[in-house]
Design a protein around this nucleic acid. Structure first.
Lengths: 157, 157
DNA sequence: AATCATGTAACTTTTAATGTTACGTGATTC
DNA sequence: GAATCACGTAACATTAAAAGTTACATGATT
């Protein structure tokens, strides 16, 4: 399949949302994420259902954070995205009758399972606030104050 | 992209090879793996180049293990396959100018990196001999002796 | 009533593994 | 030494799921 960029994209979007006073429209976010408004709506729908985001219809509407960054873990976000398939690698015939295939699949699955636990474990230990701190650090490294415009990037609004 | 089944497939193939006296043709292995001879040749080419397998042309030829199972780790096999992309998930714009995107990508990449290390670590600690032991256990659980035919499966030779 | 923005469906595009076909090359057998 | 066997490899079709795209319905604001 094609590479799944939803997680990093959503993280990126949430950082921008945390930086805005008014709701951001899907169109605006699409510009920041270099994609399409429909993709934004589709991708963020899960986060809305999960209570991480709020979507507002009509004039002046758009997307807003439903909670402070401290109360959003990356694991929650991943779950809200539907916990999409993590691995490009997998076992084909999971219910084969061949015992050798079963042994081969079991060994592969064990390694993947442990890797998955590591992944989820790290996501659980990181909040969006941690990302915001990382962002501020990067900003400071460029010699800019936090009051300077944050959205310096290659997106075109 | 489509799911990558090369690793478990190759593990399965090596177990069968370890169980045979004569070289197995790509055609035979394809039957065991429910695939095509050309796929077998393509997939196993890396293992041959890496010195894990030997391929023999001509009459009576086919594929053989180049070493005992104890001396083949799963990590070597994964490497021999070209260390194919492990994750279905990834960051899109790795060299973005947007600091928020950088922070989002970095957090995602960190989690993936740790998961990858876990995966490789496990593969490094397991040898094909361990898989053979697992296979024998499964065989014993069915009340069969190791001398009974091993290749009871859903493949059609 | 007009406009804005989300919600959603339907369809196309993309990308890499897998499946398939075909043919070249080297080794074995008679 | 000719036929056959089996690998080596290229070229192309198929597949699957995310992403891109288009279109339109629904609800909110002015």
């Amino acid at each position: 399949m094609r590479q799944d960029n939803r997680l990093p994209r959503v993280l990126h979007a949430l950082l921008h949302l945390s930086d805005m006073k008014d709701p951001a429209t899907s169109e605006q976010l699409a510009g920041m994420l270099n994609t399409n408004a429909a993709v934004v709506r589709r991708t963020m729908a899960g986060l809305r259902d999960q209570g991480i985001l709020i979507s507002i219809k009509g004039h002046g509407g758009g997307w807003q954070l439903a909670r402070p960054l401290e109360k959003i873990t990356l694991a929650e976000i991943y779950e809200a995205l539907g916990a999409p398939t993590l691995f490009a690698l997998g076992c084909n015939n999971e219910n084969s009758q061949c015992l050798m295939e079963k042994a081969a699949n079991a060994a592969t699955a064990r390694a993947l399972q442990k890797a998955s636990e590591t992944f989820i474990g790290i996501l659980s230990s990181v909040t969006m606030a941690d990302l915001a701190v990382d962002f501020e650090k990067r900003l400071a490294e460029l010699g800019l104050s936090p009051d300077d415009p944050h959205h310096s990037g290659d997106h075109h609004h």
